[in-house]
């Protein structure tokens, strides 16, 4: 701006400068960074408080708590059978053993966990818009991205709290019931599993925030999130095997040759779904006896000694899975971030 054009303005600026010195040198905490930071923290705290006091958080937490209890009960009743096969890593079996008609904790988390992510995020932005609080928020001296950042971070914090409290609940209650203390390795494996679960749920949180940015109505966003969740968790495996059978038919003479390609394609398609990725990663991390994922030929097995993998090797096995889950969460959040930043604030 050309100051010569507006002498009055220039003078005012100078006045402001002296005033600024008088006001701010005494308390330097008012600098841009600190003020910006405090705005973001205020927003984060409010979001967190909103989540923790909301009915839906209560409902989803009770739901997950009850299913965890059910899966723990199933695990306890079946753990004797499991132990008769292999008496190692009994503590981990609490998380991976299911009852006769009930899934294991890991499976429950993989299937129902996304619901928590979706619930926490589906009205993040569109509700602010509908309430008319978004433009009020945006006119405060905070960067626009701190709105979506604070919302994501608050959701992620709640998810971490849910996952760890459930994991510690199952571990603690199970420990009391079976009375076999876990080894360090087992504890580490459970912690790694819980961290992966957090990232996995954060992917669903980010996805539902994305829908909340795109969809005008919270209901549409929730339905979109639930539709994607159901498709990827339930129907993706059907689609994968269907497509694989179409491309590589297993009938007749040709089927013999197609077996490997068919399975490879089905697996590749399944791994598009974060549900499948998480399930594979979880079962590998929680079960040291899983030595490979995917197809193994007879010649590869030949001469191998049956034995448990150390944690490092298990992690190495599912490292791509973990990277992809982290990347998916990152991509989903980045997409919602970009769309939100480009959107018009006005309704």
């Amino acid at each position: 701006m050309n100051m010569h054009q507006f002498p009055a303005l220039a003078k005012q600026k100078r006045l402001q400068a002296t005033e600024w010195l008088r006001l701010h040198v005494a308390k330097p905490r008012q600098d841009t960074g600190a003020a910006q930071h405090s705005g973001m923290v205020a927003l984060y705290k409010k979001e967190l408080a909103d989540h923790l006091s909301s009915k839906r958080f209560f409902i989803i937490f009770i739901l997950l708590f009850l299913t965890s209890t059910a899966s723990l009960a199933g695990a306890i009743s079946n753990i004797q059978d499991a132990v008769s096969q292999s008496s190692e890593f009994i503590f981990l079996k609490l998380f991976t053993t299911g009852g006769s008609s009930i899934y294991s904790f890991a499976t429950f988390l993989a299937f129902l966990g996304p619901l928590a992510g979706i619930t926490l995020g589906f009205d993040a932005i569109n509700n602010e818009r509908a309430q008319g609080t978004l433009n009020r928020l945006a006119s405060q001296p905070i960067y626009r991205d701190s709105i979506i950042n604070a919302k994501f971070l608050a959701g992620a914090t709640v998810i971490t709290a849910i996952v760890f409290s459930l994991g510690l609940y199952v571990g603690g209650a199970g420990l009391l019931l079976i009375g076999v203390p876990p080894s360090m390795e087992e504890v580490l494996r459970v912690l790694v599993f819980l961290v992966i679960a957090c990232v996995y749920l954060c992917f669903w949180l980010a996805l539902s925030i994305l829908f909340s940015v795109i969809c005008r109505h919270a209901a549409t966003a929730a339905l979109a999130g639930i539709a994607v969740w159901l498709f990827l968790s339930l129907f993706m495996s059907l689609v994968a095997s269907g497509l694989a059978n179409m491309v590589y038919p297993l009938d007749g003479m040709e089927g013999m040759f197609n077996t490997a390609s068919n399975y490879g394609m089905e697996l590749a398609l399944n791994r598009i779904s974060p549900y499948y990725l998480f399930s594979e990663a979880a079962s590998t991390v929680l079960n040291p006896n899983v030595r490979s994922i995917g197809v193994v030929t007879m010649s590869q097995i030949e001469g191998a000694l049956a034995g448990a993998l150390p944690l490092r090797e298990s992690l190495l096995l599912v490292w791509p899975h973990i990277v992809v889950i982290v990347a998916l969460a990152g991509i989903a959040f980045a997409a919602s971030y970009i769309v939100f930043m480009k959107q018009e604030i006005r309704a």
């Binding site: 003020a35 910006q36 705005g39 205020a42 008319g132 609080t133 433009n135 405060q140 905070i142």
Partner: peptide, 26 residues
């Protein structure tokens, strides 16, 4: 800025809404 369709967080009191704005302003 006072937008035309001004909205407040319905679950917070008027005073809490003002406090929140103040906190956003550091």
């Amino acid at each position: 800025y006072l937008p035309d369709s001004i909205g407040f967080y319905p679950d917070m009191t008027g005073r809490q809404n003002l406090h929140f704005t103040g906190q956003l302003n550091g």
